[in-house]
């Protein structure tokens, strides 16, 4: 049980990164980015590419991949989402599904459906009072917590962060106050690209690289963001931890193959009982 709880926390932290990314783009662009799963996959493959073909160690490959995906995300924003006229949030949502479809199949085109692994050494797990924590999990904890701290600092302490929160709060007033929306949107996509790449690399380190690694997390990530009150990045972290723990502990009773099914049930319950998210009260609407 304790082991499941620990595993749940770790996997929750993993889900938290893309859930934050999802919440940030939702808050600022006001649409749900369904390509978030494909972005995770793309980030993992970019890291894989730099790691195995260029032979760069993963600690170098991951940041390079993160920058690449950040650039790709900005190109997609400028080339697709911004080009859609009369863009209501549903049209953008459908477009993001199209983007996911293209990204996933571009990966299939170049890499096929083969399962690959990153080029890293395997180490023995740490043991403490009967609880096991392997090095990948330790890495997940370190990287995700650092990334979250960094995002929190950006949001709370920097001009960019204030611009993001201002646009999320009231886009029209933000413009009046001198905030250039397009520039802030680009940065939001860049952050989203970095966070999803980190998640992709961590997932790949903990297992394998295949064209569906990100899509397999799509439902969990959305469930986390919705539980946290979609558009609220700090709520998304809490939502992710809840989802992670529920998924891992439920594995004691239900087959692990139903991990996504559990997320669906949690999601449906939250939507029925507390549609504004468990932490939705934190935002002032009027």
């Amino acid at each position: 049980m304790m082991q499941a709880l620990l595993n749940g926390l770790v996997s929750g932290l993993l889900i938290a990164l893309p859930a934050i990314a999802l919440s940030l783009t939702y808050g600022i662009l006001n649409f749900a980015n369904f390509s978030i799963g494909a972005m995770i996959t793309t980030g993992a493959y970019l890291a894989y590419l730099v790691n195995t073909t260029l032979g760069a160690p993963i600690l170098v490959a991951a940041p390079i991949a993160a920058v690449l995906l950040a650039l790709i995300a900005i190109v997609i924003q400028r080339g697709i989402y911004r080009q859609i006229r009369n863009a209501d949030h549903i049209t953008l949502l459908v477009a993001s599904m199209g983007v996911a479809f293209v990204l996933e199949n571009v990966i299939r085109f170049f890499f096929g459906a083969d399962v690959r692994t990153l080029d890293v050494a395997v180490a023995r797990p740490l043991s403490w009072n009967g609880l096991r924590l392997n090095h990948e999990q330790l890495l997940i904890v370190t990287v995700t917590l650092s990334a979250m701290a960094l995002v929190a600092i950006v949001l709370k302490r920097t001009r960019l962060g204030r611009a993001m929160r201002a646009i999320s709060d009231d886009p029209e007033l933000a413009e009046v106050r001198g905030i250039e929306r397009a520039r802030t949107v680009d940065w939001t996509w860049a952050i989203s690209g970095v966070l999803t790449t980190l998640a992709g690399v961590l997932i790949a380190l903990d297992g394998i690289v295949d064209p569906l690694i990100g899509t397999n997390y799509l439902v969990s990530v959305f469930a986390a963001a919705v539980i946290g009150g979609i558009g609220n990045p700090f709520g998304a972290v809490a939502g992710a931890l809840i989802i992670g723990i529920v998924e891992e502990t439920s594995a004691l009773a239900v087959s692990t193959t139903y991990r996504q099914g559990i997320s669906f049930v949690v999601l449906a319950l939250v939507l029925l009982l507390r549609p504004q998210g468990l932490f939705g009260f934190a935002r002032i609407k009027r």
Partner: peptide, 22 residues
């Protein structure tokens, strides 16, 4: 998801679809 914005129905139906596949 009936009282919520369409985004929520989109994700719920997607999650449902994944569960069906499982």
């Amino acid at each position: 998801t009936i009282k919520l914005r369409e985004d929520y129905l989109a994700i719920t139906t997607l999650a449902f679809s994944e569960s069906v596949r499982l």
